[in-house]
């Protein structure tokens, strides 16, 4: 499968969600790496230095907001754009995330097109699903 060379880290404790998102991103030509919680996400981000991070909020060990703060606090990861992908739809959470440096906020269940548009805009890639 062809890739566009962009690497996206998907952080979610739900394996099924990770699988679905990974499938979509892979189909669209992104390299996908995954993590199951905030801690692992930060570790992966440090080691893999992805181009973009899709971050869930409600996770064990470390939630998404904490992980976001951690990522923004670390020199090597602070510039990686983060899109929150979460079920938490209320304003407080959205505002908190944006305040803490998230570049986008997508509410689950998401519309695939909306998510992909945001990713493509950020990574300046034309999404072309490889069907």
């Amino acid at each position: 499968m062809e890739t566009n060379g962009k690497k996206i880290l998907v952080v979610d404790d739900e394996q099924d969600i990770v699988s679905v998102i990974s499938k979509v991103l892979t189909k669209c030509g992104y390299d996908t790496i995954t993590a199951a919680d905030g801690l692992e996400g930060i570790a992966k981000a440090q080691s893999e230095l992805p181009d973009l991070i899709l971050l869930d909020n409600l996770m064990p060990n470390m939630n998404g907001l904490a992980a976001l703060e951690g990522l923004k606090a670390l020199e090597e990861t602070k510039d990686i754009p983060v899109i929150m992908v979460t079920v938490l739809a209320d304003e407080d959470n959205v505002n908190n995330a944006i305040k803490n440096g998230a570049i986008g906020y997508v509410i689950k269940p998401f519309e695939r097109d909306v998510l992909l548009e945001k990713i493509n805009n950020i990574l300046e890639c034309k999404y072309s699903p490889n069907i």
Partner: peptide, 17 residues
């Protein structure tokens, strides 16, 4: 609702795909 949303996301996206 939140607990429902997570599986719904998987279902919805799976079906959509």
């Amino acid at each position: 609702s939140h607990e429902l949303r997570t599986p719904l996301t998987a279902i919805k996206e799976g079906i959509a795909l």
